[in-house]
Amino acid sequence: MSRQLIFNIFRYNPQDPGSLPRTDTFILEETPSMTLFIALNRIREEQDPSLQFDFACRMAICGSCGMVINGRPGLACKTLTKELPAEITLMPLPVFKLVGDLSVDTGTWFRTTNTKIQSWIHTDQEFDPAVVEERMENDLANAIFELERCIECGCCVAACGTANMREDFVGAFALNRIARFMLDPRDQRSEAEYFEVVGTDQGVFGCMGLLACEDVCPRELPLQDQLGILRRKMGFISLKSLFKPKARAAS
């Protein structure tokens, strides 16, 4: 016998004057290998065509479908219903602006933050199409790739105590991103320049150390390690600047 699944889903359409925030309940019979991607699409197609949620790749690499699943942020597409109890409560990710129901605007949030932390390779060199590429050790390439694997799904931000309280906190994703650039010899920024970007309360010193970010990361990124390394480096730079106030002021 397959289970009857009970879905309690947060509903609110800000564009509909008649809509009030509420929870709607839907019942669905479970099928083999059912994921929340399959379940939500079936609910929309068979029961309520107005239900809003976001999916794109449905294979856990595009980061569209972050939502709070029974109290925990995660990717809906890679969540198998068989791993959940029969009663499933779905809420939109907090921190991000609500588009409607389970759909939130992560795009604006990440673009703003990526602009703020200057998430790109900083170099004063010009690309020369006639020249062979700079050499790099394969191990370093792999190490950069490891940190580059973040898909900006927003789960770490939604699970973050600081981000939930303070709008200007950049979140674990941004600190991981900065760690990625610090590892990359093509980025010519000095440690002091990185300090300008994340050596603040909005950055690495805003973290309260609850570390839910790493617990919920669907990519299993080493967010705690990166945070620790970054803190140590940034702390060291700030100490150095305490002892050399004049040199810093002069520069």
Partner: peptide, 13 residues
């Protein structure tokens, strides 16, 4: 490919 490397792609080596 080389331009992408210049922009930051960690191509395997």
């Amino acid at each position: 490919v080389r331009e992408a490397a210049f922009w930051g792609i960690p191509w395997n080596r």
